[in-house]
């Protein structure tokens, strides 16, 4: 090695009577030079090329009228002016918020399920964890196709089941209101696996002694759950809520697959990213789509910033 600050001597091959030479090594280098940078270069390169550069480009294109095969024309703030007069934006923002709120309800569900799954002596805990995790690693498009059949108004199992109870189920994916609820329910179901893994890991981090002490003091299981489990889980809960909000605002594939084309309920269901997709890929209007994309980025950034502000008040880092 050419690095003079690191001198590593191998153990001598000499006989057993000889003392091994001490291994000398500088643990903290004063002048590592460019080496650390070289090691993170692949990551920096990847993020710059595949994330930062496209974001900068998108920002630029949001001020242009896009030529279908390149050749964008600068038009100043026109796309943003149009954005604020576009009547589909407020409705789809509302749809996205409702979707995200419904999916967020998966977090308390995951906390309760995790607590049950981590309870000592439970058989097949690994099996349950796998079961819940499968939807998370399945392609949303595949999940969407299956649920589209499940929610089918005439032939779906849900309405068949409801009919046994004497209830006439709605056309889930094509009735305004029901459609958003249906898509969000599937979104919640898909997110459970990830939430369970994170929250389960958080649960196992909680020192057992705290529970033992609580037991000694006569705290009930319920009291232990609310006074020990939940507070000490707040870092995990905070993490999944940040991730859930971000992914909630990126709703697209599930919606696209479950709703189909020419759906009556689309205006009351479509998300911001769906609007982005429409303009970018169906209408070939990528300049305006870029402006929608920037709007989505700003909303997500703002919501995340707010969450980080508010977490100081409720998250306990041990």
């Amino acid at each position: 090695m050419s690095n003079p600050t690191t001198e590593l001597r191998a153990a001598p091959e000499a006989g057993p009577e000889e003392k091994p030479a001490p291994l000398r090594r500088r643990l903290v280098a004063r002048g590592d030079g460019a080496w650390p940078w070289l090691f993170i270069l692949p990551t920096v390169f990847g993020i710059t090329v595949f994330y930062l550069w496209p974001i900068i480009q998108t920002f630029y294109y949001s001020f242009t009228k896009w030529g279908v095969f390149g050749g964008a024309k600068f038009i100043g703030l026109d796309n943003y002016v149009r954005l604020f007069s576009d009547s589909s934006i407020p409705q789809s923002l509302l749809n996205t918020i409702i979707y995200t709120l419904i999916v967020l309800m998966g977090i308390p569900i995951a906390v309760v399920l995790s607590a049950l799954m981590e309870s000592p002596g439970l058989k097949f805990a690994g099996f349950y964890r796998t079961l819940y995790f499968i939807p998370y690693i399945t392609m949303p498009a595949a999940v969407g196709i299956v649920w589209r059949l499940v929610f089918n108004g005439d032939f779906g199992p849900i309405n068949w089941f409801l009919s046994l109870l004497g209830i006439e189920g709605p056309y889930w994916t094509s009735t305004p209101g029901f459609a958003l609820a249906a898509v969000a329910t599937v979104g919640l179901w898909m997110s459970l696996g990830f939430n369970l893994i994170i929250i389960g890991a958080g649960l196992r981090e909680i020192p057992q002694e705290i529970y033992e002490a609580a037991e000694m003091d006569g705290a009930s299981r319920l009291r232990q759950f609310f006074s020990i489990t939940v507070p000490l889980l707040t870092p995990s809960i905070f993490f999944v809520s940040v991730v859930t909000v971000i992914s909630g605002f990126q709703l697209f594939d599930l919606l696209y697959v479950m709703m189909g084309k020419a759906n009556l309920a689309m205006p009351q269901t479509q998300s911001l990213v769906y609007i982005f997709y429409n303009h970018a890929f169906l209408e070939n209007d990528k300049g305006y789509a870029a402006a929608v994309g920037i709007l989505i980025l700003l909303i997500i950034a703002a919501l995340t910033a707010v969450q980080f502000r508010v977490q100081r008040k409720w998250v306990n880092y041990v």
């Binding site: 496209p54 890991a201 970018a280």
Partner: peptide, 30 residues
Amino acid sequence: MTHLTRRSILSLAALGAATATLAACSGGAA
């Protein structure tokens, strides 16, 4: 996911926010 710190959460969040919705445009002269 041993120790969740604000920093690790922030970096993940930043990555998440910058995903494919934005990374869709590129062009050249025809």
